[in-house]
Design a protein around this nucleic acid. Structure first.
Lengths: 191, 191
DNA sequence: TCATTTTAGTATCGAGTCGATACTTTATAT
DNA sequence: ATATAAAGTATCGACTCGATACTAAAATGA
């Protein structure tokens, strides 16, 4: 069965990412899961930069994530900013230092080198296949998709920019390329 | 850059595998890393079923792996058998119980469902692309490849079967489909 | 309006990971 | 024959992660 092959290879690549993250993180005194959290905050939009958001993204409990973030905050890699409207919420803003650290670690060196020799078309094809696999896998698990707004069913174009149909707020083009915890793909026409 | 896209998507798939392993493992009282070790022993050949082998595969120290295996042994998912020739070596043989447990967890349900809708050709294409990526990534990190003997430069055909050019021992067809810690791809003709 | 419920986040505890270090035993090299 | 290398184990400490219990703020609703 080819599915087993896919599983085995993905597991191996996953292990590679983890080992690499452990090594790179060790230089900075950070652990893989802390880098993952930071990477999420690096990518997500202003509706998603909360403890709850990270928790859903990583598949860990709020308590666990709260601890993780405390470490990142103490290293000044992120700042906590209370929400002005809902005072239960805390927005997690990655700092310049956090951004700098992250861009040293992502994308992983071995991925850059591995994809370096390939043609642009090949890399794009790989990215597309992986995204398609991820999308189907997330559908199978009935979990949140955490896609970018530009691929979301609630995203509408509004004049020169865009608007989120859920919040009603307007979005800039860069906004629509950040990932969101409320993201949903358009409903398929067939079936 | 598309490499970032690939990294992000791989990281996400990696997280999915891990969350799934945590859930499935929890049913049996096992942790992700323990399942990974068991999966390796499920796939590897008789030259590779040692503590050192698992250690290299997982990228963890011998001591750490030794602990992991002690748990698996206590659950009767594997047996330790001392090597007859080199008495330092211990071979780790997965039990029937271990095999049964593993086949319930691998391949992950979400992968089976995700690939279910696709055509065989598509799945094979994905498997090939992933393997190619893995191979290049491993080359970039200059690490062991842990491929199957049938793709190894030391594998020779011998009469009706095969032979390992390193050990000189003969291999059956199923043998050549198991992964090996001494595996090396053939040297590329060009470059 | 005021009590109830829900949601965001934090704190603490215990089981378990993982690397570092130190150790034993056996094989190999000089 | 002795030194060195390699396979494996044991122990310790820093850290992960989920479970549980908690506070505070928002939403619900009679």
């Amino acid at each position: 069965m080819s599915v087993q092959q896919v599983h085995a290879t993905l597991e191996r690549l996953s292990n590679l990412l983890r080992v690499e993250a452990r090594e790179q993180g060790a230089h900075e005194g950070l652990l893989p899961v802390q880098l993952e959290a930071l990477h999420y905050l690096f990518q997500c939009n202003r509706y998603s930069d909360t403890v709850q958001g990270v928790s859903e993204y990583l598949g860990q409990t709020k308590g666990t994530v709260s601890q993780t973030l405390k470490v990142l905050q103490s290293r000044e890699l992120l700042e906590k900013k209370p929400d002005m409207k809902d005072r239960r919420l805390v927005h997690l803003k990655i700092t310049r230092k956090g951004r700098r650290l992250l861009t040293n670690v992502v994308p992983a060196r071995f991925l850059v080198e591995a994809l370096d020799g390939k043609q642009t078309g090949e890399v794009d094809q790989l990215a597309d296949l992986l995204r398609s696999l991820l999308r189907d896998a997330q559908a199978a698990r009935q979990m949140k998709t955490f896609g970018a707004c530009k691929t979301c069913r609630f995203n509408e174009s509004a004049g020169s920019g865009y608007r989120c149909g859920l919040t009603g707020e307007s979005l800039s083009k860069p906004d629509t390329e950040r990932i969101c915890r409320e993201h949903q793909y358009p409903i398929a026409c067939e079936g």
